[in-house]
Amino acid sequence: MMLRVVGGKVHEGAIQFVRNESIYFKTSEGSVVRISMASLNPAGKKMVGSWIWKQGGSKEYASWIGTTDQSFSKPWPRTVYGPTSIQLKKVQSLSKKKLLIYESSHYRFLINTKVEPRVIQRFAVLFEATHKFVFSLPINASGHYMEKGSKFPIYLFGDFASYYRAGGPQGSAGVYMPRNQSVLVPMPVLGVRWTGRKWEYEKRVSNRVLSHELTHQLCAGPAFASWYIEGGAEYVASTRYTHGVYHSNNGKQRVFDYVRDKDGLDDGSGRRLGSRIAMMQLEDFMKLPYAHFSGGRDANKNYGVGLLLTYYFYHHDGGGEAKRVKQYIKAVQLGKGERAAQKLLLAGRSYAQLQEEFRKFCAKGGINLEFAKK
C-alpha cells in the first residue's frame, strides 16, 4: 500500500491501526510512523476509508477492531488487587508559573499546591486500583487503546475555590472533563487536610465520587446511551473498595443497598431512593438525552436506576453472562447508531417486555419500580 500526503511525500507499507484521526503505518523499512488523516490527499483518504470499511468498523473506532473479542471474553472479576506500593516520578517542580507534576504508572498528577510524595503515593493507590479494576471488566474500556506511554491527567487543587475556578461544578467532589479527558479533584476530598505546613490524612472518607469520575475517563469516547454512561460509572462506584482492593462478590446486594437504603452504605454513599421508585416508561428512560438524564430534579433517581439497569444487563439478563450488553457495547464502539445497538439489548423483545422483566428483577431485590402507564 502507498499513502500519499499533501505535499507529495509517499509512505509505502501497511496500515497497523487507525486511532483518533491518525493512521499508524508500518513502513516497508519496518518503522512505524503516525500519519494524520487530515494530511492525506483525497486518494489516500479513500484508501484508508476502504481499509476501515473492510475491517467492519468506522474511522473513530477502527483501532479497536481485532482486539474486542479478547477484551469481551475475559471472566468477570471477583477480587481485583491494586498495587501495594506506588512508584512516582517527579516531572516538574511547583513555581508561580508551573504546576507540580508527578507521574505513576498510568496517571499524571498536576498539582497547584505543595505536597509531599508520600501523600500522592497514598491516594494514587485508589487511582491505580480503579484503573486495574475497570480494565479487568470484560467491557472493552476505551482506555485500553491509549497511545503507548500516555498518562491519564488528574488535576489536583489545594482548595475548593481553585477547583471551582478551573471548571469544577459547585458542590461537586470531583469531575471528568471530556474536552481534555482529565479528572479534576479538590485535595480535601481525598481525606487530607492542610495544617498550615503540610497535608495530613484525616479519617477515612468515601471514594465513590472519584471512582465514578475515573470510570468516565477510562471509558471515554463512544456515544453510549445516558443510562449506560452513568450506570457503568455507578457500577464501579458502588463496588466495595478497601485499601487498594475492589471486591465484586455479593455485588447485587450492595447495588440494591446503594440505590435504596435511606442511610446509604457504611461509608455514607448511595442514592437513597427508597423501595418504591416512580418511573417513566423504560423505553423513554433508555432514550433520554444526556442533558435531561443528568440535569434537573430526577438526576439522582436516573443515576440510581441507570445502575440497576446496568447491573441487570451485566449479571442477570440472558442467563447472566452479559452477552447482550457486550453486543451493545461493541456495536456502539464500531460506530453503529444507538437505535440499532439497543435492538441487540432487546434481543427480539419489545421495550414493554424488557420493562416487565427488569421490573420483576428489581422487585426480587426489594425495589419496586412503578412505571408510568402509556
Rank of each mutant, 00 (worst) to 15 (best):
M1P: 11
M2V: 14
V5M: 08
V6W: 09
G7C: 06
H11W: 05
I15D: 09
I15T: 13
I15Y: 03
F17T: 11
N20Q: 14
E21M: 10
E21R: 03
T27R: 13
E29H: 08
S31N: 14
V32E: 09
N41V: 14
A43Y: 13
I52P: 05
Q55E: 15
Q55G: 12
E60I: 09
A62T: 14
W64V: 10
I65R: 00
T67S: 12
D69H: 02
S71R: 02
F72R: 03
K74T: 13
T79W: 08
V80Q: 02
Y81S: 15
Y81A: 09
T84N: 14
K90G: 05
V91T: 12
S95W: 04
K96P: 01
K98E: 15
Y102I: 05
H106Y: 12
R108A: 07
F109K: 00
I111C: 08
I111N: 03
T113F: 09
V115F: 04
E116T: 04
P117F: 12
V119Y: 06
V119H: 04
A124D: 04
L126I: 15
E128A: 09
K132D: 02
F133K: 01
F135R: 03
P138K: 09
A141K: 00
A141F: 00
Y145E: 10
M146Y: 04
K148P: 03
S150Y: 06
P153T: 05
I154C: 04
G158E: 04
D159I: 10
S162Q: 11
Y164W: 14
G168W: 01
Q170C: 07
G171A: 13
G171F: 06
S172G: 05
S172I: 02
S172V: 02
G174C: 06
P178G: 08
R179S: 12
R193E: 08
E200L: 06
Y201F: 13
E202Y: 09
K203I: 04
R204M: 10
V205T: 15
S206W: 05
N207M: 11
H212F: 04
T215M: 00
C219Y: 00
P222L: 11
A223E: 15
F224S: 11
A225H: 00
S226N: 04
G231W: 00
Y235H: 10
A237R: 00
A237N: 03
R240D: 05
Y241N: 07
G244E: 03
G251R: 15
Q253Y: 11
Q253R: 15
Y258M: 10
R260K: 15
G274F: 12
S275W: 08
R276K: 15
A278W: 13
M280C: 12
M286G: 08
P289N: 12
Y290S: 08
Y290G: 05
A291K: 02
F293V: 08
S294D: 10
G295Y: 12
A299L: 07
K301A: 02
N302L: 07
G306V: 08
Y312S: 01
F313T: 01
Y314K: 06
H315R: 15
G318P: 00
G320M: 11
G320E: 03
E321H: 12
K323N: 09
R324T: 06
K326V: 07
A331N: 07
Q333H: 04
L334Y: 06
L334V: 11
R339Q: 14
R339W: 01
L345D: 01
A352S: 12
Q355M: 04
E357T: 09
L369Y: 06
F371G: 04
K373F: 10
